[in-house]
Design a protein around this nucleic acid. Structure first.
Lengths: 252, 252
DNA sequence: TAGTGGTCTAGACCACCGT
DNA sequence: CGGTGGTCTAGACCACTAT
């Protein structure tokens, strides 16, 4: 624990995360206590708790009252699934991803967009409409809004670039660290039906997503509309806290 | 704001939640400031922030720096951060959940059911068709298959029980510790349309789920079909650890 | 019983939003 | 500019866990 004296809860989080990934803190064991961490980092206990809450959100630690913060994920085993872009995911499945820009529009952020992107209302944004393909077949329609700080760079990307996220990372140095998704079902609009080649009002799976950098800056807000029977989202949910304390009898 | 002086952040949360549900705080507008809420509830600002964080987790409010805590759309969102049953989730949103069994059938497990439930093919199972309501309005159709070991106890549950999961836990001692979900969009079948009161082939959000006990024993396999605009599922994904994967097709 | 997380208080300063 | 959320400090007491 000879660290360069972080100063905010984000620094503490980053440092703890690195140590967990490095294996300095082993899964299944407890971290040093909040009080001790506060001393070592030279911050108040509340700041440490703030950082730990961030690690908890990422599923890396779980608090157990009276026992400590237990390190959860065994990052070495790579059993967890990484956050992937459409193209990254497609390639990992052995498919060939494609994309085609249908429209690009510069405009001013609506209040909804401003809230999602955490920018000022009416600030400059870039809106892009793309179709996405798997093996040459259109499976998804994507309407994305980019905040001004990245808009001009996005505009330079070729219309048929298969992976925008890859370009952002490799050429712009912008990496997605976190994303929120809201999933529901909607009927195809006439615009959707034209671009996706389905009948109007047929069911589409809609995913609204906001992506963020590691520092919490919003990168994009997008609405994806998937053809049915092309993509399924899977979620594994657990009730960790209850399970830890109530496993008296196991018939495993 | 003449409330009976709550004393902890949970009480503050409960009170704010009730007021939002009652419409005292309108979606799209800001709550009273943290400082004002702290004064009115007679607590410190930190306690108010703690309560607001809980509302944020439930997707009911979003903080906007400099502007306030904005009440989100009344569109219901379901988060996978916590594993909850339909009834538990509904209650956490201040809604009144209901349920009604439309059909109960004893049968033998199909190969698909056997695989999902990890039981032998053709072993005895119980299939139940239920509609689920929020505030008296039908929002979801649920077709669930239970394995033999719990089937007879499930059959004793009243047809209008609002929370099957609660009964399983409190009366049978069976607790759901883990669940897998697969989410996509499907058109309403004629059977769906009759029970949900929508046109045939209109879009439904389908959630296929398998629940397990802490020891990994399968409790149930179910297909839920939600009316559009009633429920949205939320997923937070992170590059370090997450709960979201995408898969092409499904092996339903 | 000693140590841990859970919670609360009462201040303080900053960055940001709207007018 | 005034008001708002974002963050931090430095204490305090409690419920719970481990030994």
């Amino acid at each position: 624990m000879t660290s360069p004296r972080p100063t905010s809860h984000r620094d503490v989080l980053r440092d703890l995360l690195a140590r967990i990934v490095d294996g300095e803190f082993v899964a299944g064991t407890a971290l040093p206590s909040e009080t001790r961490l506060a001393e070592r980092y030279g911050v108040a206990r509340g700041t440490v708790r703030n950082a730990l809450a961030g690690l908890e959100d990422r599923g890396m630690v779980s608090p157990v009252q009276g026992a400590g913060w237990i390190v959860q994920s065994t990052l070495h085993t790579q059993s967890f699934v990484e956050l992937r872009s459409f193209a990254q995911w497609a390639r990992s499945k052995g498919m060939t991803p494609g994309g085609l820009v249908h429209a690009t529009e510069r405009g001013n952020a609506s209040s909804a967009e401003a809230r999602k992107l955490r920018v000022a209302s009416r600030s400059a944004v870039l809106r892009v409409t793309r179709t996405r393909t798997l093996g040459g077949r259109v499976v998804m329609l994507e309407r994305t809004t980019y905040p001004g700080w990245i808009a001009e760079r996005i505009a330079t990307i070729p219309a048929d670039e298969a992976s925008v996220v890859d370009v952002m990372q490799s050429q712009f140095g912008v990496t997605t660290a976190h994303a929120d998704h809201a999933i529901d079902a909607v009927p195809a609009s006439s615009a959707d039906s034209a671009l996706l080649g389905v009948r109007r009002s047929s069911p589409l799976l809609r995913v609204r997503r906001t992506s963020y950098t590691a520092s919490g800056q919003a990168i994009e807000y997008g609405e994806d509309r998937y053809l049915p029977d092309t993509v399924t989202f899977q979620v594994q949910a657990s009730s960790v806290s209850n399970t830890l304390t109530r496993s008296e009898f196991s018939d495993a």
